[in-house]
Design a protein around this nucleic acid. Structure first.
Lengths: 161, 161
DNA sequence: CACAAATATTTTAAGTTTGAAATATCTGTC
DNA sequence: GACAGATATTTCAAACTTAAAATATTTGTG
């Protein structure tokens, strides 16, 4: 019996209880996030005739009212560059955002909410927050704080790996 | 000032602190689940030359060794029917699963792991659990239990709505 | 200044995902 | 037994997503 077996009481190729607990935690995160995302996607489609990825881009731009570069957007949303290109294209077609040239750098462009984009998002964000609160109506204030604390730990450990 | 204003001290169209805490919790869930999914996707691609959706289907079939119907698969994975069709098509092409006719119901089919599928998945599942445990290495046993408890609450409230 | 390396973005191909329509089959009712 | 409605799955178009290749531009170095 090797050292880790002596400690854990398991054969070397078996996985620990802790490892299994973490796997269960991950599967539960995945389950909740799929369920909630599905609900929000449907509401978004039925109420706003729009999609979650577009909402996410609008939300990012609403926080940075001066606009963001494509690369800042994709980093902030944790999706690929090419992905953002398509979403922004559609938001431009809808008249909710504009692409503007960047002074002294003709490679880059700044994406910015239009007036219509600001107005639309402000309205949608309120409704969205209500949906989320309803979907999480069993989540007490204390549990919300605990959840946020635990998840932030995980986030930070996996920050920029 | 109306009753809810008197209680919350906020104008009627503002959202409550609890609502905001729930929104933050949801955004944190989303952030962690995107980050972890991205990491796992990359490892899956580099180490196994495969994808997460395929892994998910194999995992479901590994739990139900007698096989599952397409509709059972899509309900279990919480994805659409049409989605499962494509994933299973690719797994069939790889020789990891088979489609079998259902006695007395020619509309349906049972999807089942092949021997190769069982063997491949068993190996991959161990490695996968290791990856997850590493990504969650800051998650203590107690926090894992708390996380699971809180997320199950949310799941149950949104069960089949 | 030339030009290699770096950076910002778009394009592309393949895969995933959805929601709706289409197809095939089954079940209950008359 | 006919056949309307229900059920199981596939097909389809559109959108999303990634990773890699391509394009355009900037920056640093000799």
């Amino acid at each position: 019996m090797n050292k880790s077996e002596a400690i854990s009481g398991q054969a070397a190729n078996e996985t620990s209880d802790l490892s299994k607990a973490r796997l269960r935690a991950w599967l539960q995160i995945l389950k909740v996030s799929r369920k909630i995302e599905g609900e929000l996607r449907e509401k978004m489609r039925l109420e706003f005739g729009s999609t979650l990825p577009r909402f996410d881009v609008l939300a990012a731009l609403y926080r940075e009212r001066d606009g963001m570069r494509m690369s800042e957007l994709s980093k902030s949303l944790m999706v690929s560059n090419g992905n953002v290109t398509g979403i922004v294209d559609r938001l431009v077609a809808e008249g909710l955002v504009v692409r503007m040239p960047v002074e002294n750098d003709r490679r880059a462009s700044i994406v910015k909410l239009t007036k219509a984009g600001e107005k639309d998002f402000a309205e949608r964000a309120l409704v969205h927050e209500g949906w989320v609160s309803d979907l999480f109506s069993d989540l007490s204030s204390g549990d919300a704080d605990a959840l946020i604390r635990i998840l932030r730990n995980i986030s930070h450990h996996n920050e920029a790996p």
